[in-house]
Amino acid sequence: EPLWIRPDAPSRCTWQLGRPASESPHHHTAPAKSPKILPDILKKIGDTPMVRINKIGKKFGLKCELLAKCEFFNAGGSVKDRISLRMIEDAERDGTLKPGDTIIEPTSGNTGIGLALAAAVRGYRCIIVMPEKMSSEKVDVLRALGAEIVRTPTNARFDSPESHVGVAWRLKNEIPNSHILDQYRNASNPLAHYDTTADEILQQCDGKLDMLVASVGTGGTITGIARKLKEKCPGCRIIGVDPEGSILAEPEELNQTEQTTYEVEGIGYDFIPTVLDRTVVDKWFKSNDEEAFTFARMLIAQEGLLCGGSAGSTVAVAVKAAQELQEGQRCVVILPDSVRNYMTKFLSDRWMLQKGFLKEEDLTEKKPWWWHLRVQELGLSAPLTVLPTITCGHTIEILREKGFDQAPVVDEAGVILGMVTLGNMLSSLLAGKVQPSDQVGKVIYKQFKQIRLTDTLGRLSHILEMDHFALVVHEQIQYHSTGKSSQRQMVFGVVTAIDLLNFVAAQERDQK
């Protein structure tokens, strides 16, 4: 057995438009009618409502009807409940999964919650491996369901041993009777949507819809739904939504950006999952974080739909894509998950301010006199920076000697690579993860907040409520011999709460 199987392995699926269902090699399930009293909570997966979006479509000038398939009504709160249950049931049916076995899954959280929910009911041990950027709410729900959680670096490539995929496979090879159901490759993922989600949409719309818009992560949702719609409703256009920084969209030119990270969760990847059939997507749109969270908040405030950030991405694209539809036509959007997962993220004004998705003037509360002053007023001194090749031991000596707790790590040209902190280095040394002679590049981390000289002290204040420091950066445009230009970030300084307090105190003292 291989040590790991690539999540982007070539698909062996034989589905073709027009091929009889009787030739399918898979076990198919028909939607079942729910009894009045459910035998367990797993029976509350599927049969989610279709809700008309009344205000947002009109606000953006849509002539067509805009409908939302509300997947956050599933038992675990997301569309991923469907595939989690289906993968477990299919693994039980073919004898792969037996009582007492362990389920391991690399996930952005929602599939993990679905699997942990099913594992709690069915009696399996469950280990979820997820990147650090995923919300604390997801972690809390997983723990409450009895799952064990392993976190991995957000910026690790999918084929790196440190990625959530790599760590999951390492655990599988170490733990007896453990299984990775593997949402990236498992046919049960798109089949769950082909058999149930798509049929529900067709039934709820009486077979009449002209466009379907869905955000894409593993691709199982859009693949399964689109294949069924292509068979039953061939005139329906399928629109895929991919965040900026991901590479799922086609044509490839759409993916060209210097951005590699994004805040919206559960969609987009740096590889093409095996289950994603991009041939059934008629057109791709890219979405960005700001519009995703703005539209998610709009869905909550104006439509009462308590959905997550990827739902915002989907609707932001839908109001663009559906401009081509006329009166009497219908566009369906998939709202994948609930706001429950993001209470401390985009639902929080403070978080939105820190990330730059909300401006101070958007909030009406009274601010102190210094709130709208610029960061450049602080008069920061030149920063202490270190090269990635310097040793951890030497870096600790320098920081202690100069009285700093942290320093930016830059390359020879001064471009920011990340940050090192005294606390992080000492804990890594004590844990045996690094040696004093190791290069400081081994303990770089990139989960820090950046701020510009033109940003306000109010925004800085919000950042420092949650973080010990902020890195002050400025952009530099560099022209190359080819005539092309590129933008790079340079370090201007490091600012802490002490710097802000000293500035405010000094100004008030001078005024007296």
Rank of each mutant, 00 (worst) to 15 (best):
I239A: 06
I239N: 00
G240Q: 01
P243I: 05
G245L: 02
S246C: 00
S246H: 01
E252A: 14
E258P: 14
Q259W: 07
T261I: 06
Y262R: 00
Y262E: 00
I267S: 04
Y269I: 01
I272H: 06
P273Q: 06
D277Y: 02
V281I: 04
D282A: 07
K283T: 01
K286T: 00
S287W: 01
D289C: 00
D289I: 00
A296E: 06
G304F: 01
L305G: 01
G308H: 01
S310V: 01
A318M: 01
K320W: 02
A322I: 05
L325R: 00
Q326V: 12
G328V: 12
R330L: 02
C331Q: 02
V333C: 13
I334S: 01
L335S: 00
D337L: 03
V339H: 06
M343V: 09
M343Y: 05
F346A: 04
L347R: 00
L353N: 03
K355H: 14
E360N: 15
E361H: 03
P368F: 08
W369L: 08
H372A: 11
V375T: 03
V375N: 13
L384T: 10
T385A: 14
T385R: 13
P388M: 07
P388V: 12
T389G: 10
T395Q: 08
I396M: 15
E397W: 11
A407F: 13
V409T: 13
V409K: 01
A413W: 08
M419E: 05
L422C: 15
M425G: 09
L426P: 02
S427T: 12
A431W: 08
G432T: 06
Q435Y: 11
Q439C: 12
Q439S: 08
K446E: 07
F448I: 15
R452D: 09
D455E: 11
T456P: 12
G458N: 08
L464I: 12
H468I: 14
F469Q: 14
L471H: 07
V472Y: 03
V472E: 14
Q476Y: 10
Q478I: 11
Q478S: 15
S481T: 12
T482W: 07
S486N: 13
M490A: 15
V491P: 10
F492E: 13
D499F: 02
L500M: 14
L500E: 03
L501E: 01
F503T: 14
F503R: 11
A506T: 14
